[in-house]
């Protein structure tokens, strides 16, 4: 999207980000970056500030201090749409799709292909949506078509559609906040597969998930957030699953991070 984007420039870089709500100081100087084609897991206790942090990245909240760089360029995001235009997309589990509408309408919601009078090019939208379902999602059965309503889909399929939609619109970084909540085991696997698919397409993911097993299975890097600060950042090779779990338990009890 940007001229000066090289493989080395991180997609997103946070420098000393602070965020307060009134007197509540939620983020206290966060430094973090997300590179191209990597899955970064954001882990930490409830209330650590994970959701607040991603809301800063997606333009929901303005930081109270520090700077946010997208593709190496300092930005001051005005809205969710602003972040989206810069290739950052959030997939929320329940809020992503409208249940009673057909898939083709959902996929193009807010970004319809229209003529100058605002009438939609429905044929083209359906064709694109169909291609999306078949290539990205691998839906080849006749049961699910672009005319199907969302309410007939399973939780994992919905999540998949939301992710495929984000990819289709050239998102560079897709943020998944608790994407497996309330899903069956099999569905969870599908969603984690989608996350890997994003990385394989050369895009990046920030994953928030309470389940350390999920996190360890797919992430390339773990960033541990504790009371508004980054307590540590580890590559997957540095830390086995059990070490990660042990570390999180210890952080929870002692408030200290010991690296094994």
């Amino acid at each position: 999207m940007n001229q000066n984007t090289s493989q080395q420039t991180p997609i997103v870089e946070l420098r000393d980000i602070h965020k307060s709500f009134g007197r509540v100081h939620v983020l206290r100087g966060v430094d973090m970056e997300v590179g191209r084609g990597e899955i970064v897991a954001l882990v930490g206790d409830n209330g650590a500030g994970k959701s607040t942090l991603i809301k800063v990245i997606t333009g929901v909240h303005k930081p109270s201090g520090g700077s946010l760089l997208i593709n190496g360029e300092a930005v001051d995001l005005q809205s969710v749409q602003d972040a989206r235009r810069r290739g950052i997309e959030t997939v929320y589990q329940e809020r992503a799709l409208a249940d009673q509408q057909a898939l083709w309408r959902n996929i193009f919601a807010g970004r319809e292909l229209t003529n100058w009078l605002g009438f939609m090019n429905i044929r083209e939208q359906k064709r694109e949506a169909d291609r999306l379902l078949r290539t990205r999602m691998g839906f080849t059965s006749r049961a699910i078509t672009v005319d199907s309503e969302v309410q007939g889909l399973s939780g994992g399929e919905k999540q998949g559609i939301a992710i495929a939609r984000a990819l289709h619109f050239e998102a560079e970084l897709i943020i998944l906040d608790e994407p497996t909540m309330g899903l069956s085991l099999k569905e969870t696997d599908k969603v984690l597969d989608f996350a890997r698919g994003i990385r394989d397409a050369g895009k990046s993911v920030i994953l928030i998930d309470h389940n350390i097993l999920h996190v360890h299975a797919v992430a390339d890097r773990f960033v541990v957030l504790d009371r508004g600060r980054v307590a540590g950042s580890f590559r997957k090779e540095q830390l086995s699953r059990d070490q990660l779990i042990e570390m999180m338990v210890e952080l929870h009890h002692t408030g200290q991070l010991h690296v094994a």
Partner: peptide
């Protein structure tokens, strides 16, 4: 289309930039 989305799920409509 936007009327249908807002009537269906206001929050998702908002998230989609409507």
């Amino acid at each position: 289309s936007h009327v249908l989305f807002v009537g269906d799920n206001e929050e998702s409509a908002h998230m989609m930039g409507i």
